[in-house]
């Protein structure tokens, strides 16, 4: 082949390399879905908030992340698998754990998440959450007025938020919650109910703790 015969194929090759080079320079090959974040890398705690909704989210997301790290999967895979029995079974097989162990890991993760948030000062005192608690407990009118007239220090002593959330998590039956036919729509009422029950139980326990032991036994302490 003379040089002339190589010219056109050579020019074609140069044009192809130029286009490919330009594409790779602008991120060609990296235009793929975002990879799941490593669940074992600790994320910064969110801002201080008095919004119970945000606190709940932080607890759940942190808990799922801890559980995913413990189970050797991503938090996204774990969250996608949790609502569906078939996906849970597949995840159990993939991680080499039983479904009960997976749910136990989620619960342990949420408790660890509460501890972390509490230590980081991200769980607001109950006095800052009076309206939210009142809403969960169904208080209104005079009852709400009465609660609001209680000094903040007393509210914080009677309703330590971290303890209430911990108690709510411990009281949650995750297996039952996840098997609810209504799926995610049923979770929010169940979580609210768990927090309400935990708040009532915590108040009761704190009051009983404050009473002399003779009276405490009368009220069932």
């Amino acid at each position: 082949m003379t040089l002339r015969r190589f010219m056109l194929p050579g020019a074609a090759l140069v044009a192809v390399l130029a286009v490919l080079g330009m594409q790779f320079a602008f991120g060609g090959g990296d235009f793929v879905p975002s990879a799941a974040a490593d669940p074992c890398v600790e994320r910064p705690l969110g801002p201080v908030t008095t919004d119970l909704d945000q606190v709940t989210q932080a607890v759940v997301v942190g808990g799922v992340q801890d559980a995913a790290c413990a189970l050797g999967t991503s938090r996204e895979s774990l969250l996608l698998a949790l609502p569906n029995a078939t996906d849970r079974a597949a995840l159990a097989q993939q991680t080499g754990k039983t479904e009960d162990e997976i749910l136990a890991a989620v619960k342990a993760g949420m408790l660890a998440s509460v501890d972390r948030l509490d230590q980081g000062g991200r769980i607001p005192p109950a006095s800052g959450l009076v309206d939210a608690y009142a809403s969960e407990l169904g208080l209104s009118g005079l009852a709400l007025q009465a609660v609001k007239s209680v000094p903040p220090e007393m509210i914080d002593r009677l309703l330590p938020t971290g303890a209430v959330v911990r108690r709510a998590i411990e009281g949650l039956d995750l297996a039952e919650l996840l098997s609810d036919a209504d799926g995610p729509d049923a979770w929010e009422p169940a979580l609210r109910s768990a927090i309400r029950d935990a708040a009532i139980a915590e108040v009761k326990e704190q009051i009983l703790d404050q009473l002399p032991s003779s009276l405490s036994s009368v009220f069932g302490g």
Binding site: F6, L8, A12, V16, Q23, G28
Partner: peptide
């Protein structure tokens, strides 16, 4: 280019192949 059929066919194959490979590595949508 005044090239032969063979040169045109080789060059064209390189261009079509390269263009398709470039479509596999698009930097955006």
């Amino acid at each position: 280019a005044q090239a032969s059929t063979r040169s045109e066919a080789v060059a064209g194959s390189i261009l079509i192949g390269g263009g398709l490979i470039a479509l596999a590595f698009l930097p955006g949508a």
